[in-house]
Amino acid sequence: MTQPHDTRQIIEVDRTPETPRDVAGKRRYIAVAGNIGAGKSSLVEFLCQRYDIEPYFEPNEENPYLEDFYADMNQWSFASQIYFLTAKFKLHLDLDQTTHSVIQDRTIWEDAEIFAENLYRKKLMSERDYRTYRQLYEAVRSQIQPPDLMIYLRCPIRAVKKRIKLRGREMEKNIPTAYLKQLDRLYEGWIANYNLSPVVIIPSHELDYVTDLVDCHDILTAIEKYL
């Protein structure tokens, strides 16, 4: 499953059970996953310009713990992750009620399987807090619908760091490289085993869908069948 990071190939994977999919007239739920700085928000904005879909963005700016978390991950990891889990659950309740197609920037599955998992493995979240978080996550997960398509943006750490620097968010400027690398490893393991919906894997550091017509065509062709 894991592909070299320098490939330009768009990969399509579907491990979902072979059950009939009633798609006629149905609103679509598309999710975009990927590491910090992988280009999720840019792709969401691009697809919203091309299609009649409503964006739902990661609630970073609203998280009252995020700046404290980046300054002291050990102290604020549990509070920050609980905030994201709560905000994502509310977002899912909202988007589940929509009658039109939606696209989401970062998913609730990433919050748990990547970010909370990493904090626990790095001993930045205690086992007690992690158990509590996972119990809440499992309860939330049972109440929400998976996406009709998961788009995963694969991006090497050198490109991620460059993008983080370019966008200039103060709270992100001192994120350790080791932290980003561990997130990348968890992302690759997670997407290799993800089986809730079809997956389109895009090497976001190689494909320029904004100015390159060939890249734009290839990406839209891979995605349009799910829209």
Rank of each mutant, 00 (worst) to 15 (best):
Y194E: 09
D6C: 06
A178V: 01
K123W: 08
W76A: 02
F69K: 12
W190R: 09
K162P: 03
I108F: 03
V32G: 00
W190L: 14
Q182K: 15
D22R: 10
K90A: 08
M73N: 11
S42P: 05
A71T: 07
N74A: 07
N174G: 14
Q75T: 02
K26H: 15
G39T: 02
Q104S: 00
M73C: 13
R158P: 02
D215A: 11
L153F: 12
W109Q: 13
Q143A: 00
S204R: 15
Y56T: 09
P17C: 09
L85G: 07
D105N: 01
D215P: 11
E138V: 11
R15E: 11
R106I: 02
D129G: 07
N60I: 03
W190I: 09
D218W: 15
L43W: 11
I144G: 04
L213K: 14
F89V: 03
Q135N: 11
I191G: 05
G189C: 04
K26D: 04
A159R: 04
V200G: 13
M73A: 13
L186A: 05
Y29P: 00
G168N: 13
L166P: 10
A139K: 02
D129Q: 06
H5G: 12
I108H: 04
K173R: 04
S41W: 11
I175P: 11
W109I: 15
E62N: 03
L119D: 10
T211Q: 08
R8K: 12
K173G: 01
M73H: 11
G34R: 04
F84P: 13
Q81R: 07
P203Y: 00
D105M: 03
I164G: 02
D94G: 12
T2R: 11
L207T: 01
I164D: 00
L43P: 14
T7Y: 15
V160R: 06
Q3F: 06
Y152P: 06
N74V: 10
R131P: 07
I30Y: 00
Y83G: 10
V102S: 10
V210Y: 05
A71H: 10
I11G: 14
T99M: 00
I53T: 05
L91E: 08
T221F: 06
I164A: 05
I36G: 04
Q49A: 09
A33W: 08
I11Y: 14
Y130Q: 03
E113F: 08
P17T: 05
